[in-house]
């Protein structure tokens, strides 16, 4: 029995009365009182401590991640290190007990994820990151939902970045291959013209060739001036393209440095990159 009596469905899975697909799981949880001063990073999650829910145990312990303008920052670490959690915390999906999140110098710790989207953050979840029943073009249109201006040019830019999507623009996104779906997912997030893009394991479940291509595209995106904060399982490849890398262990910063620097670091290599 869960703590929330309204969520107790007694194991019922009767599809004629309830519709389990597409249900929301995001728990909006934001806010601390504490702020602190650090670098001039474009986006920074600063000394974050917290966990899911109001009373959940802390998953992050004084963890800091940041990305500079137009750069790629990568969060790596072993399973269960809180990589995704750290990124979600910068997006307002975690209850922070301490620390703050700032975007372009502005404190956004108290904002909901939706409000952060308006402020210029784009987020690509690891799974369920496209509207499967809608066409590719409609997916991109939904990405631009908050924009009131004409987004035709942005859509053209996305199509230029991912040419395959232009060919498949009228096809339901759910019928695409894994790599193409990820392109739709990133494309959707780019439609808001974000200043910073958060990617949660964009290469999970795709073949090595597709992975290389996706990384190339991500570099291209970064060149247009968009900052990218990314969580990656494929630590070695990710660090190779990263300007900055964070190695997290048990919710805390273990190593921080440039991508190249971390790759060269003997200890990081031994413990996380398999030699």
């Amino acid at each position: 029995m869960s703590g929330n009596p309204y969520q107790d469905d007694r194991g019922n899975k009767d599809a004629t009365i309830t519709n389990p697909s597409g249900r929301g799981e995001i728990e909006v949880s934001t806010g601390t009182g504490h702020g602190s001063h650090t670098a001039e990073a474009f986006l920074i999650g600063d000394s974050m401590t917290g966990g899911y829910g109001k009373s959940g145990p802390d998953i992050l312990h004084d963890c800091t991640v940041a990305v500079n303008k137009g750069e790629i920052a990568v969060i790596v670490g072993p399973n269960g290190a809180g990589k995704s959690t750290a990124m979600k915390a910068t997006f307002g999906m975690l209850n922070l007990r301490q620390g703050s999140v700032r975007l372009d110098g502005e404190d956004i710790t108290g904002l909901t994820p939706q409000a952060r989207v308006v402020k210029g953050m784009g987020f690509v979840p690891q799974t369920h990151n496209i509207f499967t029943s809608m066409s590719v073009q409609e997916n991109l249109e939904m990405g631009a939902f908050i924009r009131t201006d004409n987004f035709k040019t942005t859509m053209e830019q996305v199509f230029d970045l991912f040419p395959i999507l232009r060919d498949k623009r009228n096809q339901p996104a759910g019928e695409l291959s894994g790599g193409q779906r990820q392109q739709v997912a990133v494309g959707r997030a780019l439609m808001t013209q974000p200043k910073v893009l958060l990617l949660d394991e964009p290469t999970a479940g795709v073949s090595p060739i597709v992975m290389d291509e996706l990384f190339d595209r991500i570099i291209e995106v970064a060149r247009t001036g968009i900052s990218i904060l990314m969580v990656e399982q494929n630590a070695r490849q990710a660090l190779e393209i990263a300007d900055k890398g964070y190695v997290l262990v048990q919710g805390a910063n273990a190593h921080t440095g440039t991508g190249k620097g971390l790759l060269a670091d003997e200890e990081v290599r031994k413990s996380f990159l398999g030699g």
Binding site: N12, K13, D14, A15, T16, I17, P20
Partner: peptide
């Protein structure tokens, strides 16, 4: 089946 349809039945 994959899920029930007991209610309507």
């Amino acid at each position: 089946l994959r899920s029930d349809y007991l209610a309507i039945a």
